[in-house]
């Protein structure tokens, strides 16, 4: 879902670059409280792992592939603020080094993947976790649904950008239908990878999972009160 230069006009790209920058400024603030001696290297590893897995396109339908976006996964592992920054580092690396995703379109991609992908993924994860019984397998199910649902929402971000500043003259509803349909399929892959990765970390070092730790910390503070 890396947007090349040219799909979206320059004024819209600049406007979204502004929103993306503001989002990253907030994330820098929010991330500080989540980053300590122990979690900073883990956050770096999360970005690194997402870069690697984003290279692994999987087939979804005739002549179409998809790859992990990683927003939900990162948010569950290291918290949403740090996750937004991690995703943005990945997107900047891909655009600068590998010519993947346009430079003027970077703000558009950051908005869709680092902001929408992360926050929708994390929101769904928290919601599902609340509904399900409090155990480790619920974390994996919540990770699956968070990953699944984050992808069509990120795709909808692109449709919004296309509706505002698309350089083509195609009908928005046509773009919307095609983008959402394709990205629900990709979302299934996203959900599976997110659940497997979160499950693997839960099995070896559940104390490192922000989305799992978060629950017990909230409980602790409640007890203290």
């Amino acid at each position: 879902m890396h947007i090349p230069d040219g799909f979206i006009d320059i004024p819209t790209s600049v406007a979204f670059a502004g929103i993306a920058t503001a989002g990253m400024a907030l994330s820098l603030k929010g991330a500080k409280s989540a980053l300590d001696e122990k979690t900073a290297p883990l956050a770096g590893l999360t970005a690194t792992f997402i870069f690697a897995v984003q290279m692994l396109n999987f087939p979804v339908a005739a002549g179409t592939s998809g790859h992990l976006l990683g927003g939900a996964l990162a948010a569950i592992l290291v918290g949403p603020w740090v996750a937004s920054l991690a995703l943005t580092v990945v997107l900047v690396m891909q655009a600068l080094l590998f010519a993947d995703g346009g430079l003027t379109a970077l703000g558009l991609s950051v908005f869709n993947m680092s902001l929408i992908g992360v926050w929708v993924g994390y929101g769904i994860f928290i919601l599902v976790k609340k509904i399900l019984p409090k155990n480790k397998s619920s974390i994996s199910i919540a990770a699956f649904l968070g990953g699944l649902i984050s992808v069509p929402f990120a795709a909808a971000g692109f449709v919004l950008q296309y509706a505002i500043g698309g350089t083509g003259t195609f009908s928005i509803s046509q773009v919307l239908t095609a983008m959402i349909g394709t990205h629900i399929l990709i979302g299934i892959g996203e959900g599976v990878i997110s659940a497997l990765a979160v499950g693997a970390v839960m099995a070896s070092r559940s104390d490192l999972v922000y989305g799992y730790k978060g629950a017990s910390q909230v409980l602790e503070t409640r007890v203290k009160e």
Binding site: D36, E37, A40, G44, F51, V82, L97
Partner: peptide, 14 residues
């Protein structure tokens, strides 16, 4: 490159 840039950033923030 990603490991270096991201870990560097997060250590700096920390």
């Amino acid at each position: 490159a990603t490991a270096g840039a991201s870990t560097g950033l997060f250590l700096l923030l920390r």
